[in-house]
Amino acid sequence: MQPERTESPNVSRRWRTALSGLGPILGLIALCIAGTLLNPDFATVDNLMNVLTRTAFIGIIAVGMTFVIMSGGIDLSVGSMAALIAGSMILFMNSLGAGGHPATLVVALGMGLSLVLGAAFGCAHGLLITKGRVEPFIVTLGTLGIFRAFLTWFADGGALTLDGELSDRYSPVYYASLLGVPIPVWIFAAVAVAGGVLLNRTAFGRHVQAIGSNEQVARYAAIRVDLVKVLTYMLLGLCVGIATLLYVPRLGSASPTTGLLWELEAIAAVVVGGTALKGGEGRLVGTVVGAILLSVISNILNLTSIISVYLNAAVQGGVIIVVAFLQRGRR
């Protein structure tokens, strides 16, 4: 009994939908203009690479998070998971290195461990949520504490540091560049593209979207809802693993502050990018833009001193709300 509106689609709404998709990009462009005006150094290639490189961790995790949130889930544990994976990698590599294995092999094995652990943690989340029928918020809130506590325990509250030679062998993974672009940026780009293809051009991506839009309908439409959900959490875990294997060579250490609040940044990037927290709707490009936007804000704040440092968080909060406002949907 809906009024017939199908004959000529609502033009103004079309426009608004198109505009709302551009919200984060418009926000990013505005920020970049503002940044350049405030400090010409902002618009240098070096600074651009700095920003993109440091976005890589959150950005890669946010790509995985997009899938989880799209399917109607949430993962609060990613920061702690990254910390625990980083710590485990370092302990593992140090003990292998002490055993006299060649450094390159040890580093490769360490990176492998990071991916395996990420996928395993994600799988555990997925099973607890689907088979155990515990709310994702609760499951991952629990592991948020568990993961970080284990790292703190491993590190005795201090820092775990990668041994000298291993650290030297590993550091190019973060610090080296290919064609003038740092490795983490390449990997971030690769993950984003792969995520985009997976979300928009595969049956899995469509199923994720269908489950988030209406889980019940998806179940009736012969989608293996539980399997798809477990896979989204595993995918996110894998992304955390990738982010961590890029993170470890940066400082060569893991401490209880590693990955602190990454979960909030990743979720913020996803939501600022236009993915609905309740699931069903979202864009991967938006997530990437959202992640870059968040690091650009703090970059600009660091490059200027017009605002009291006490107000930094307020500026970040304000920009996030403005961008969300620009891309708000209907109602």
Binding site: R206, Q209, A210, S213, Q216, A218, R219, Y220, A221
Partner: peptide, 21 residues
């Protein structure tokens, strides 16, 4: 609306959802 169709998804997505493979 509760079990048959994804009313918030497009016509195409709904039609092919069951046999996307």
């Amino acid at each position: 609306k509760g079990k048959g169709l994804h009313v918030d998804l497009g016509l195409r997505d709904n039609l092919t959802l069951m046999v996307l493979e």
